[in-house]
């Protein structure tokens, strides 16, 4: 690692990545979204509020790079009846806090309130999101994103988009 990838990540830089990701998802701009992750990054939506052994637990979503690409393909293909059309979403991220920080890496926690609209129905999903962000030669990348819905262990309706 060179010096530039070891610089600490400021709160402002971290927030900008989180907002960029949110904007790419809301505007269905998936190619730059896929490029925003490190190759071994995991995207998780846990099914239980507590615990972090995601690999050995049932999750609502547990996506590595290949699964993220498939999820995008599913949203684009028109083959999925629940994603044709894909729900429109607007997500607001706030209450940012850096939980931990080391050279070129930080853990950022924030709140997300997302409104979904599709077929005359409006629904809201509220979540705590934790990002692990890392500096790479190409800029800041997401190494992990965990979306903890506040009602994850309750019954929720189908979510045919990316939280």
């Amino acid at each position: 690692m060179d010096a530039t990838t070891r610089t600490a990540i400021s709160l402002q830089d971290a927030m900008e990545v989180a907002w960029l990701e949110a904007d790419l998802l809301d505007s269905a701009d998936y190619d730059p979204w896929l490029a925003l992750w490190t190759p071994d990054a995991i995207y998780v939506v846990p099914a239980e509020p507590a615990g972090d052994d995601f690999e050995n637990t049932l999750n609502i979503a547990y996506d590595d790079a290949a699964m993220r690409a498939k999820r995008v393909e599913r949203l684009r293909s028109g083959q999925s009846v629940s994603a044709s059309p894909v729900a429109r979403t607007v997500r607001l991220l706030s209450r940012f806090r850096i939980l931990s920080s080391e050279a070129g890496r930080c853990e950022l926690r924030c709140a997300q309130i997302l409104t979904e609209y599709r077929r005359e129905r409006e629904r809201m999903h509220t979540a705590d999101i934790t990002f692990v962000l890392v500096r790479t030669p190409d800029g800041l990348r997401i190494a992990r994103k965990v979306v903890r819905l506040i009602n994850a262990s309750d019954a929720i309706t189908g979510v045919s988009y990316i939280l």
Binding site: V45, A47, I60, A61, K70, S82, A83, G158, S160, L163
Partner: peptide, 29 residues
């Protein structure tokens, strides 16, 4: 073996649940 149970979890997540590649389409129809 944990590896076998992990494999089962990933297979389940792939199709089932609110963000699976199967269940939301079932729910829609």
């Amino acid at each position: 073996p944990a590896a076998a149970n992990r494999a089962r979890l990933r297979i389940h997540e792939f199709f089932q649940g609110p963000m699976g590649f199967g269940s939301p389409d079932d729910a829609e129809v």
